[in-house]
Design a protein around this nucleic acid. Structure first.
Lengths: 338, 338
DNA sequence: AATAGTTTTGCAAATGTTTTCATTTTTCGG
DNA sequence: CCGAAAAATGAAAACATTTGCAAAACTATT
């Protein structure tokens, strides 16, 4: 870490001025090929690496995009992060990643930190954020994007799906198959607009079909197979069982399936199960999971395009995108017989 | 993005010098409380946000750590990234994340980019990397850490598990239960030392038990449930079936389980299956997956400690850590009857 | 060979901070 | 209320770059 070569060292070694070295990097066409060669040689010899921090203070873009997510280690966000990150990488940006654990105060703090790093843009998951966060972002005038969820009237452009609609679709489907005794299993709603919208969608669809949900059948667990499995295990311990379980996402559905399998309850013969998300693996689950497809990879890729557009157009572009949720009818949810 | 407040704007507004403002941030005890209050007020009024890029060129740490992974959207790396990132966040760092898709050339390019951003340290997954990458890192003298895998003689400190041992353990276990007809299903070995080490461990353990693996039973698929399921489906289409399938990781094992379940083959009665990794969900799979535990969260957390130590001790600390793989005997692998 | 035009280079100022050192202000014991 | 010591502040240099402008070095035309 001692005397790392800087641009003037390179200049000296190549017997040119620092300006020329700088130009040789940033506007190679402005410097004579022969000179460029000398410089390249010097660069290699000294192991010089450009200092983006020093460039950044000239108003040059930092080449970083802040991505702030609730959590990383969830199948679905991982997929989103992957596609987002590889798409922005392709465009020459690098991702500054942070997770707040569904705590919107922490999200604000992280946003600030990102701005200290002078990210060129930021992506947030969902539409609901603390007021401070929104103010900060718009006051600092940083290209910002809301991922995953979509609303036309959100304070920033959204690239995502309609989570209410997702819930509504699945509720409608389950009710349409004749189910009346329906349980739900969702994560805590606090600070998670995706989940609460989905649940509202489900409830509305059911109510529209004349079904009221029983509060004892509305389970709430974190997003893990383990939690969901044990919640469903105790749900079915009672004689008074529902005929279908609507899960807030596919991970919860997997947990439910394992619980039923371990109790020897056949899906979908004796009990229907549905997910939301259509994660990797849900299609190949046995039996294949009926769920709502929310195209994480597409969202990631489109979002990447969108931020970059926002950045390069100084926020003038119209980049929102609504990806419609889609019902995937597979094997875990069947018509109520009898 | 126009006239964002800078430190001199704040200074003017607070009627003090820039030096004082700077001090008020970095050494608050050196400035009079009253002055500090004036400054804080000005900061708030102008919406000033410190510019880390400008700090960084003073040799001050950038507060970022580069993490370069093969892929993000795999259960297991997601877990690792999550724990690593939240642990470093706690210590005031932010993660610069990039993925190379198991391509070590790209890894080198990404490493360079990280260095351009003047990350304070970098973490790489696995022990095998291109020579250029190693040279770059040691020549630039950046605190570097190898995660996930462990070897005493690696060029940089490792925080990880012994993947050969992991493979060996599971091979031994399966052979010890009397299985002789054993299939394996592993990802492509290219650029993935974890996978190749595991496979070597398995093969060695089997050979030691006098078992040679048949090449037609050595399946190779990417890390997805879908790929694994279809590979296993065609494997069992033949009459000449193995009695056990050793999978390179838990995702592959899940795929295998679904394949068997869809073919109506009982696990473990008719076929044993094992994984490696002990991912979230494997314990609650039905039947619960016998696997080798590799403690991703612990590795992430320890690795975070380690890099930060490396950074703050200028590379003088001895931070390597070997987390032993552990056999988790559950329900998917039973003794061969008859 | 001289001129005009073009290409290539260097100088110096600018970027937003931190830090050393010197100066000013405050505090406090007499 | 004086002076010494301590505390607080400011001026200026430093950090690693980029860039506008001007000078220098070529080319081509006559």
């Amino acid at each position: 870490m001692k005397d790392q070569a800087d641009i003037v060292a390179v200049a000296k070694a190549a017997r040119v001025s620092p300006s020329t070295v700088s130009r040789s990097f940033n506007h190679p066409d402005l410097v004579k090929p022969a000179t460029r060669k000398k410089i390249d040689a010097a660069v290699r010899r000294l192991g010089y690496i450009r200092n983006r921090a020093a460039q950044t203070i000239h108003g040059i873009r930092s080449g970083t995009i802040g991505l702030i997510v609730p959590t990383i280690d969830q199948a679905i966000f991982a997929e989103l992060i992957q596609s987002f990150s590889s798409a922005v990488e392709e465009k020459g940006f690098t991702i500054l990643l942070a997770s707040h654990g569904y705590n919107l105060e922490r999200e604000y703090a992280l946003t600030r930190k990102m701005l200290e790093h002078r990210v060129d843009g930021v992506g947030l998951i969902g539409i609901e954020h603390s007021n401070d966060t929104f103010e900060l972002l718009s006051q600092q005038n940083v290209p910002s994007l809301l991922l995953w969820n979509y609303a036309a009237d959100a304070p920033f452009p959204c690239v995502g799906s309609d989570n209410y609609q997702a819930g509504f679709l699945i509720g409608q489907h389950v009710a349409g198959l004749g189910h009346r005794r329906i349980a739900t299993i969702f994560p805590p709603q606090e600070g998670n607009d995706r989940a609460s919208l989905r649940l509202r969608g489900v409830t509305d669809a059911l109510r529209q079909a004349g079904i009221e949900t029983r509060s004892t059948w509305c389970l709430e667990t974190p997003y893990t197979v383990a939690a969901s499995k044990s919640a469903v295990l105790s749900l079915i311990a009672s004689d008074d069982r529902p005929s279908a379980i609507i899960c807030g996402n596919d991970v919860l559905a997997w947990g439910a399936m394992h619980a039923l399998s371990s109790a020897g309850i056949d899906v979908p013969q004796q009990m229907s199960v549905t997910g939301i998300g259509d994660f990797n693996g849900s299609k190949d689950f046995e039996p294949a999971l009926t769920t709502i497809r929310i195209p994480a990879r597409t969202i990631g890729a489109k979002a990447a395009d969108a931020v970059v557009q926002l950045i390069t157009s100084a926020g003038q572009a119209d980049v929102g995108a609504l990806l419609l949720p889609e019902l995937m009818v597979r094997q875990t949810c069947s018509a109520l017989s009898g």
